[in-house]
Simulated scan of single mutants.
Amino acid sequence: MRNLKIKQKILLLTAVPLILTVIALMLVSIYQLRSLGEQEVNQIRTTMMASKRESLLNYIEITESSIRPILTSELDVEEMKRQVYTAVRAISYGDEDGYIFGLNYDGVMTIHAAKPELEGRNVIELKDVNGTPLIADLIKAGRNGGGYVEYLWDKPSRGTEAPKLSYAVDIKPLGWVLGTGFYIDDIDDAVALKQAEVDAKIQATVVISSGVGVAILIVIVLINLWFSNRALVKPILELSESARQMSLGKLNTNISVDSKDEIGELADAIGRMQKSLKVIFKKLKQG
């Protein structure tokens, strides 16, 4: 700082606080936007998940209603199973991804319209790629009065595994649990889309804030430089030149600085010194 000129020091004292202020305001704006964005993202996820849970419960209730006459009939258990199998296997909703599945308590797949090859197989040990024992969890949820289970499962319309939410309910007369599920990758898609919007807003805020901040900084710095040059730098340079001329013996140098601040006091002091030097030189010449 000692090697900097006054104009440079003034520029630093003006620019640095402004830059820090702009950065602070930008960080606050980004934080607020990110917080609001996270709230919106969480709201989307919560709302969509609640809607899917309600729909799953409705589909299972409809299925239970459709097979209730069979379960309350006087048919033997095996005939009940056959008729329930036929009725449930025919149920579909939405698109090809909407179906009802059945499992007995031992984990044997009794109904699976989307993957008939699984029917009759014991899949109790089946786990998804994350290690979730989905069959065991579905049976447990169903026998505990009905419940939801999340896992990854093959999605026919995409040909790949996708996150799925299923609801299972106990069918005690048959020793089965019936369940159905929704793929919830659309929730992730909606969340990703919203997150992209939030990120775009943050990026736009950074660009706009930076542009506005730079513009304001330039204007304020220019005004400050103009004012400081007029009120500080120019008078100081004039006084410096006057002092230099006096050091060369030119005591008639005109000191034109006229202000009421510290620079004015300095000008008055130099003026008094000039008068004193004139008196001293005059006496020396007379002596």
Rank of each mutant, 00 (worst) to 15 (best):
M1P: 15
A15K: 00
I19E: 07
T21A: 11
T21Y: 15
I23G: 05
I23C: 04
S29M: 03
Q39S: 12
Q43T: 07
T46M: 14
L56M: 02
N58H: 12
Y59F: 07
I62D: 05
I67Q: 04
L71W: 05
L75S: 04
D76G: 01
V77L: 07
E78I: 04
R82C: 11
R82A: 13
V84M: 03
R89A: 12
S92Y: 15
D97I: 05
T110M: 13
K127A: 13
K127T: 15
G145R: 08
L152R: 09
A162P: 08
P163V: 00
S166R: 00
Y167R: 06
Y167P: 04
I171S: 01
K172H: 06
P173V: 00
D188L: 03
D189E: 08
Q195T: 15
Q195M: 04
V207H: 05
S209L: 14
G211K: 12
I218S: 05
I220L: 12
W226A: 09
F227G: 04
S228V: 03
A231Y: 06
E238K: 03
L239V: 13
S240W: 01
A243Y: 12
Q245C: 02
L248P: 10
T253I: 10
V257S: 03
D258F: 09
D258P: 02
E262V: 09
A267D: 07
R272L: 06
R272K: 11
M273N: 10
V279Q: 11
K285D: 14
Q286G: 03
Q286H: 10
